[in-house]
Amino acid sequence: MAFDEFLLKAHIPIIQDWPVPGIKFRDITPLFRNPQTARQITDALVLRYMNSGITHIGALEARGFLLGSNLAYALNLPLLLIRKAGKLPGKVDRIDYQYEYSQGQLEIQQGSISRGDNVLLIDDLLATGQTLLAAAQLIHRQGGDVQEAATIIDLSNLGGRERLVEANIPVYSLLAFDD
């Protein structure tokens, strides 16, 4: 099945003023209700990473879990859950960060990766890049390397790609919007 950018974009509506006034939210849930678009996304990412040297998939809560679990299964790699604070049992590494319209905390269980592991960070959308930067810091604290950050959507006007590249994190997105 060929990758169809127009089909994917047609399945991403804008929700005005959500989750807070002034935000134009790109909703990816219709992509996963349609088996054809869901398969195109997964297949495109699997083809990109199947011989890349990645040793782990680091999925960001919550929509990154949709992509991460598919990739981990297809590539036969361990899945790391990078979650909001208070969601993981046991000892965790935690980081505070600021993002588009709020602040947050991310956590990863201690001992999830080892020095030299190569992690692909995966999330649904790249906006300002702060969440992916925070996740990369958690990976680095445990001795891992971030090979790349991958998303379905890059909101290119918000500067996230530039922030990640400045931090030496390559970025790959299937689609870009400049609004």
Rank of each mutant, 00 (worst) to 15 (best):
M1L: 02
W18H: 15
G144V: 15
L106I: 12
R163E: 14
F3V: 03
S52Q: 10
Y172C: 00
R163C: 05
I82Q: 12
F25Y: 14
I14N: 15
G90N: 02
P89Q: 11
V165K: 12
Q103K: 14
F177E: 10
L126H: 00
K91P: 00
I169P: 04
A10N: 11
T131K: 01
L8F: 05
T151M: 08
K24F: 05
D179K: 11
G64V: 02
P170I: 07
L67P: 05
M1N: 01
N70P: 07
D154Y: 01
I57K: 00
K9G: 05
A167S: 10
A72V: 09
V46C: 07
A2T: 13
A62S: 15
I169F: 10
R163P: 00
L75F: 02
F3C: 02
L47N: 15
I82W: 06
D154I: 02
Q103F: 04
G90Q: 06
P35D: 12
Y172H: 09
A59P: 00
G159E: 09
A134Q: 04
A44S: 11
L174Q: 14
L79K: 00
Q109W: 13
A136Y: 12
S102R: 07
L88P: 01
E162K: 10
A167M: 11
A38D: 10
S69M: 09
I12K: 05
A62H: 05
Q142A: 04
Q40P: 08
M1D: 02
V146S: 04
Q147C: 10
A149Q: 04
G143T: 08
P21H: 14
E166H: 13
I54H: 01
A135Q: 06
R33M: 07
A134K: 01
L80R: 08
L158D: 11
S69Q: 14
N70T: 09
N76C: 12
Q103S: 15
A150W: 04
A150K: 01
Q110L: 12
I23H: 03
Q137W: 09
R39L: 13
I153F: 12
G159Y: 08
L67E: 08
S114V: 11
L45S: 03
D17H: 14
S173N: 06
L175V: 01
Y73C: 04
S173V: 00
A62N: 03
T151K: 05
L80N: 02
G104A: 11
A149F: 01
